[in-house]
Design a protein around this nucleic acid. Structure first.
Lengths: 351, 351
DNA sequence: TCCCCCTGAGAAAACCTTTTCCCAATCCGC
DNA sequence: GCGGATTGGGAAAAGGTTTTCTCAGGGGGA
């Protein structure tokens, strides 16, 4: 009467026992044949293999894991629901693990300790081999303690427990790349517009900004801090170009290093609205290299990329080696950023 | 010599056998006590429970799954690596499943058939209870066949196999919401700027656009199709406002319905650069409700939200019921969009 | 007093695979 | 032809839990 319904066709997977029975051997022999273990005639081995092949036998990971005490599964904990940070990071993690046959449980815990504990417990019950914690901020802890779980934990782009291993971006290094790029291009009055003072990275980048300027004998303007928004980029331009100018000299900046791409977007738009040419009069560099933003600014935005996918890869590989029993020193590893040059900085004066 | 290293502390989980031994009962009784099965004195039951509690006993999911033939695990397949579509969708799926104690394997398959098959095989080996497939386009297939896997599959925001269950956004309905909103506000000359003709949603939305205009006796301008980019929004404004005008009347549009938020952003920026007021002279509505874009436009963008999290939830619940053995009719379910009103449309003329 | 039924709890099979040990048969050298 | 080594393969335990079956003892009815 009703049309097609769809309860599972229930195609039972074939077990090793069936393979063995059909090949006329014991399960022990079948197992050894398929795993290249044990001794038997080449004929027996190939007969078993062929039978397994024909029947579409695939070993039950659950049974294997139970025996081996290793589930080839890890948990990835994040609180970055909609974030552009965790996605590339996850892709990197997954990429590092897939080759080892390891699958990833994705758990979004928002910022809810109860939810986090729920997910961690579920992962523990499912006997994950390890956990990777990641977040949207380097200087914030996930709302759960991963220290004494009995399985290794790696932190990526989030604040680690003491005595754990963490991978984070080298924000100071990234800022250096940007400011040094400006210096090489002959910019002399370089401003810095960044995010809220409550973010650790804001200070790390600002410090590097100051250092590079000092090394190059250039004047330092106190960094302008505000929200991570386009609107703040606009406002900052107003302050920079309506204010009393650089270093008391009444000169206006010829470069702006921004704390993220959204601020940079606001800065570029505001400059254009004031009739100030980018990159001719003012160069702009962003941070995050959020492609969809960086490529939509006019001109396209030069930006610092934190190499999050690489960071995820490293975290995945580190976890793998920890799971494999190899010891490793705890600590925070900083991975280098890279500068993605587009068109918002111009070429060297002699270029 | 070297400082602290960190090979796993190897805190072995406690097993049911140990609980039983310590409580002085058999494993069978212990199991039944903890699961509320079997018959025993209340005293025995509570003694066992207390022992388990004290020892921190947590049943090994692997062993349970092996026996029950149900892993409380599902696979989520996506090809939307960096996408803003899959994240809310995943959050919805995860949200629907976490309450049932089901964990989610996240597998990003890019568009690589080999990688997709690899992940599907891994999921099958790990005995997932079902698979949810999702992608970045409603009208594209994932590069793998999920039809005869022996486990249920649900499709969300991607093209399903025939005879499968799929959840997609109601793009036509969403477009209606937008255009009808314009009509209610008294806009009379409504243009439509959308994405490439190769996208099915572009046609669905354009068709709804035409219908609503016809229903309201308003002139229809042939939709302008181009890339999903800000630059195309700029270009479209040029064509709309430099061209010969609306319906041959030389009148310019007083509203633009855009195929996504990036195009809308370009449109709004271009209008402002021409000195055309938004929303006073021209109203603009976007699609996707990509918050970070919609809130950064000036003025903030009214946009159609596809309710992707809800869509993910529905998909998760549907999979759960399929896994539970309940039959369901195959077919494509369209879930309604909603209009998120911000400030790019203005108020009703009499408002 | 006898029988039956019920209660409380344990033994064992089952889930599926791996691995260790073991055994029978064959082969070799002498 | 005999002792020992080698070869090919199987039996069984292990991993942790659930579930069915079994069983001993006690209580109640006739």
């Amino acid at each position: 009467m009703a049309s097609d319904v769809q309860p599972t066709p229930a195609k039972q997977p074939v077990t090793l026992r069936e393979v063995a029975a059909i090949a006329g051997v014991s399960v022990a022999t079948a197992s050894k044949a398929l795993n290249g273990q044990g001794r038997m005639t080449a004929e027996t081995r190939s007969r078993i293999r062929e039978t397994a092949q024909r029947l579409g036998f695939r070993p039950n990971s659950l049974a294997q894991s139970l025996l081996r005490r290793r589930s080839f599964t890890v948990g990835l904990l994040t609180n970055d629901t909609y974030g552009r940070f965790s996605l590339p990071l996850m892709a990197g993690v997954s990429d590092a693990l897939v080759d080892a046959g390891v699958s990833v449980f994705l758990c979004n815990v928002e910022d809810d300790p109860r939810l986090a504990q729920l997910h961690v417990d579920a992962m523990l019950d499912k006997r994950v081999d390890g956990i990777i914690a990641t977040g949207k901020r380097i200087d914030r802890h996930l709302p759960v303690d991963l220290a004494n779980l009995g399985i290794p934990a790696i932190y990526a782009f989030t604040e680690p427990d003491p005595n754990a291993i963490a991978f984070v971006s080298d924000d100071a290094g990234g800022a250096r790349l940007a400011v040094e790029h400006f210096c090489r291009l002959g910019r002399r009055r370089i401003a810095h517009v960044s995010g809220p003072a409550s973010f650790a990275v804001v200070h790390a980048r600002a410090e590097a900004y100051r250092e590079v300027l000092a090394e190059n004998g250039l004047p330092v303007l106190e960094p302008l801090l505000g929200p991570w928004s386009e609107a703040w980029g606009h406002e900052a331009v107003r302050r920079l170009f309506d204010g009393e100018g650089f270093d008391g000299t009444r000169e206006k900046p010829d470069a702006v290093f921004c704390g993220n791409d959204q601020i940079a977007r606001g800065v570029i738009d505001a400059l254009r609205e004031r009739g100030i040419g980018v990159p001719d009069e003012v160069g702009v560099i962003g941070f995050d290299n959020w492609q969809i933003v960086a490529e939509a600014t006019r001109p396209p935005l030069t930006s610092v990329d934190m190499n999050l996918a690489a960071l995820g890869r490293e975290a995945g590989l580190a976890l793998l080696s920890l799971v494999g029993g190899e010891p490793a020193l705890p600590g925070i590893r900083k991975l280098p950023c890279r500068l993605v040059v587009r068109q918002s900085c111009g070429r060297p004066p002699d270029g």
